[in-house]
Simulated assay, not measured.
Amino acid sequence: MTYSPDHCTDATTLQLLADRLAADLAEMQRLMSICQEIQYTPGLRPDVDPDGTGRTATRGPGRPTEDIALNGARLRVQHELTTAQQHLTSVIALVRGVTAALDRALSQWEGEPPASHGGLIP
């Protein structure tokens, strides 16, 4: 589904989008809990020796600390966590802005004077 401003023309569509966002966040939280569990876990044992001969590995890594720290799969997970943090920071700001705007519109609808936050939204 492509998201555009046209999708938010009524409260029903907005509720569907909010429900989808909540489901996506629940899935992301599940994945993040797995990421936390694997943070200090050794990676998978290689199928072949590092010299590239194609021989099956018969023993564990000779330098386990380096293999844990420099494991390519672990580095990929760390990169994605950093990227997620950057994007989520922006998403939180956007959601808070939308929430504040809806709150102001509903307050006006109910005849309340506009709230003054001094530019800061808690």
Rank of each mutant, 00 (worst) to 15 (best):
P42K: 01
Q108V: 04
T56Q: 14
D6A: 13
R55Y: 05
P61I: 09
P61Q: 05
D6M: 07
R30Y: 14
T58Q: 05
P5T: 03
I92T: 14
C8I: 08
I38H: 01
A84R: 02
D47N: 13
G54Y: 06
L81R: 06
M1R: 15
C35I: 00
R59D: 07
G118C: 02
I34T: 05
Q39K: 11
V98I: 07
T9A: 09
R45M: 10
A11I: 05
A18E: 06
P50L: 04
G118V: 00
I34Q: 06
D19G: 07
V91Y: 08
D10R: 06
T82P: 03
L14M: 14
R55G: 07
H7I: 06
E110I: 05
L44C: 02
E112I: 02
R55K: 06
S107D: 11
L25S: 10
T9V: 11
Q39D: 08
D103M: 07
C8N: 14
P46L: 02
H87N: 11
S116E: 15
A22E: 12
R104C: 02
R20S: 11
R20W: 01
V48W: 09
R104E: 07
P61F: 08
Y3W: 10
R104M: 07
R74W: 06
P113N: 07
A84K: 02
T65L: 15
D47A: 15
R45Y: 05
L21Y: 13
L25I: 04
M32K: 12
L88Y: 08
D24S: 10
Q15C: 02
L81F: 02
T53L: 03
L70T: 08
T2S: 13
D10C: 06
R20G: 08
T56Y: 10
I38G: 00
T9M: 07
G118L: 00
I34P: 01
Q15G: 00
Q78L: 14
I121L: 10
T83N: 11
P42S: 05
T12P: 09
D67H: 11
T58Y: 04
T13W: 01
G60L: 03
H79N: 12
V95R: 15
R30W: 12
P50N: 05
G118H: 06
H117F: 12
H87P: 03
S107W: 02
R104N: 10
H7D: 14
A115M: 01
G54I: 01
R96F: 05
D47F: 14
P42V: 01
H7Y: 10
Q39S: 08
T99G: 00
L44P: 00
T99K: 09
L102P: 04
V98T: 09
Q29K: 13
E112Q: 14
P113R: 13
A101M: 08
P46D: 03
G54M: 05
G97W: 00
R76P: 04
R76M: 13
L75N: 10
S116F: 12
V77S: 03
A69G: 00
D19N: 12
S107K: 11
T56A: 15
R59V: 08
A22Y: 05
